[in-house]
Nucleic acid binder design. Structure first.
Lengths: 372, 372
DNA sequence: ATGAAAGCGCTAACAA
DNA sequence: TTGTTAGCGCTTTCAT
């Protein structure tokens, strides 16, 4: 019955064998270390999990011996008992979107600095895959970050009931969340454009389902009303380069001197589509995007954009999650709002006082253009 | 002693309590299901882990009851005994490099389709962080994919000894690896350029340590020798946009009509730097990159590039890894080489037969230019 | 400060 | 086909 198998006790357990058959030979356990150190297994355990509860000298000796034997505590065994896996999950709606790169890095860095490991699941823009990934991750992780999730509020709350959860890019009552301050961002965009003489804006809308799209459009209307600007919205378009290209056709029918795109991907596509029809940016029209993703400074003209604090977003989400896991009972009910920052490049310029509609406009005598 | 605690046995275990104190109430175990179904725990276990070994009818009944109770098998308990965690680790040297986006997605998709979960670790270009992440991941995962690792061959072999390992973007004897066929890619690049009349190439070198850089340069020299072209190499440059910008200064001192960059990031930076000094691409010089990352089709001129099969790379690496985990004893000793594909855009054009060195050249009577 | 022993949830012999 | 039982490696009372 004694676990410390004395040499004289004859029948060795049968299962031991199989574990050694795995890749590489089986690694030493606390029992091996205990035997070598001449102490009980529990002492070894304590030496690692709660130093201070054991004599400093013996603790040191145990550590030494353990190191020599190449002992490493088995995370599975620990987790089975305590539930502490030191893992968190990051769910992303679409990994290929450059928007997430820096977020992922920030999240990873925050996890690593706390000794946590990060599980990454890509929902591939599918609701089904997202929930499946979530289900799969829940039992193994201590916490979850949901990024731009497509799940319903109730599904999110369901998840949050099972594990500490932080939501990125969405505000949700009672669920800790962190997001960019899109309203402030829109104000920055409009301020910039209006300083350049623009007073009529076209908004290239993103997907209806996107939380950020709602806020951006609402904020745009709010500023417009405040300052007496005119705005209109076309779309929705897919939040991709292709979506932006597609927007050009609609825009030509009712051009304005300034365009605010749902995000950089759309703005980039729009820039490209406009060039294809012979429109000049920023001479004919100024274009501004959101996020400041990779590539916005490489295109011609460079895209003026409202930069989201990408890395900080990931960092903050994970740090907050870790605090939650540590038992910090979500203090702030409000989402943590991180400020954006305007990055001015070459796609925006002073409004030209042209009298006629541009050649590329589909409607030659555009009322909106004249009215502008 | 009996695990199925009969109501009459008085002292309930003390520890049970704590697990219920966690987030949400403790979930049902096989014992709970067994009791509800009136069978032994092992039968429940079998019903899940090896259906067929149990009466179809009872199996179905058990499943039903389990589902009703919301039973989910605890991966930690299973793993503790069997070592099967259904997790793999993907180590990446630098997540922010757009090169990896599609690779990650491919890897993720392959893992998900096999019911595996993927752990993502970003080495942040640091050898130390990479090994640390590896150490942390090894005990929990069943296999590892090392992408563009900075670790030494011996460190890689060390890892491979502990867990099935597949290396991406590096050839290593005895370790399964998958990579793009860079040699073939370089031939495609040179073929394209030579068809446009170019016969003298400047290679913008990447980091010495980069495996791909060695192959690309060697292959370039090989083709050049075969066909009687002239080549020279400048650098090394950081494999980033900044690196490409930096290359311009050197290039101006000894310009050629065609430039082959280590990768797209460098090519993109070069394009931008050249524009800044007033050089025209492709009129003055043709530029070609490698990989076909995000953004190469958005810049002006669009970058001609040798496209790597990014998603397939990730997919293949993980599929091979899973096969390895399943016991497939690495058949092919050779790395799996995936073919690249030339994507022709606007940064390459027919060589102009100019007699004088271009204005932006630092050396006005460039021997190399004349010789061209 | 340390040791003994029970038990986390599951799987695998072995027996029936 | 099903049940009994031991044990994976670790943590945690409870004694000492």
């Amino acid at each position: 019955m004694a676990r410390t198998s004395e040499p004289e006790s004859p029948p060795a357990p049968a299962i031991r064998q199989s574990s050694a058959a795995a890749h590489g030979s089986s690694s030493p356990t606390i029992y091996d270390v205990a035997r070598a150190a001449g102490v009980a297994a529990s002492t070894v355990s304590r030496a690692f999990s709660r130093p201070g509860r054991v004599n400093a000298a013996t603790a040191e000796r145990i550590r030494q011996i353990a190191a020599d034997m190449g002992y490493r505590t088995n995370p599975m065994a620990r987790a089975l008992l305590t539930g502490k896996t030191s893992m968190i999950a990051l769910l992303i709606s679409d990994i290929t979107n450059p928007y997430y790169f820096e977020i992922i890095r920030g999240a990873q860095a925050a996890a690593a600095e706390a000794g946590f490991t990060m599980l990454l699941a890509d929902a591939q823009e599918s609701d089904r895959l997202e929930r499946q990934a979530l289900d799969r991750a829940i039992p193994t992780v201590e916490g979850i970050v949901l990024t731009s999730t497509r799940m319903s509020d109730s599904a999110i709350r369901m998840a949050a009931k099972q594990r500490p959860t932080v939501v990125l890019n969405r505000a949700l009552a009672d669920i800790p969340s962190v997001a960019t301050d899109h309203r402030y961002g829109m104000f920055q965009a409009v301020d910039h454009l209006s300083a350049l003489g623009h007073d009529h804006f076209t908004y290239l809308a993103g997907p209806q389902a996107a939380w950020a799209d709602g806020i951006r459009w609402t904020s745009l209307r709010e500023v417009a009303e405040q300052r007496g600007f005119r705005v209109h919205r076309i779309g929705p378009y897919a939040p991709t380069v292709e979506g932006g290209v597609a927007a050009v056709e609609d825009f030509r029918q009712r051009p304005t001197s300034a365009v605010i795109a749902y995000n950089d991907l759309v703005a980039l596509g729009f820039l490209r589509g406009m060039a294809a029809v012979g429109a000049r940016v920023p001479a004919d029209v100024s274009v501004i995007g959101f996020d400041n993703i990779f590539g916005t400074d490489l295109v011609t003209p460079g895209l003026t954009t409202v930069a989201a604090p990408l890395r900080t977003l990931g960092l903050t989400a994970v740090r907050n999650l870790l605090a939650l896991i540590d038992g910090a009972h979500a203090t702030a009910r409000e989402p943590v709002m991180l400020p954006s920052k305007l990055v001015i490049r070459q796609s925006t310029a002073r409004r030209s006082r042209r009298r006629t509609a541009p050649e590329w406009a589909t409607v030659k005598t555009s009322a909106s253009w004249r009215g502008n």
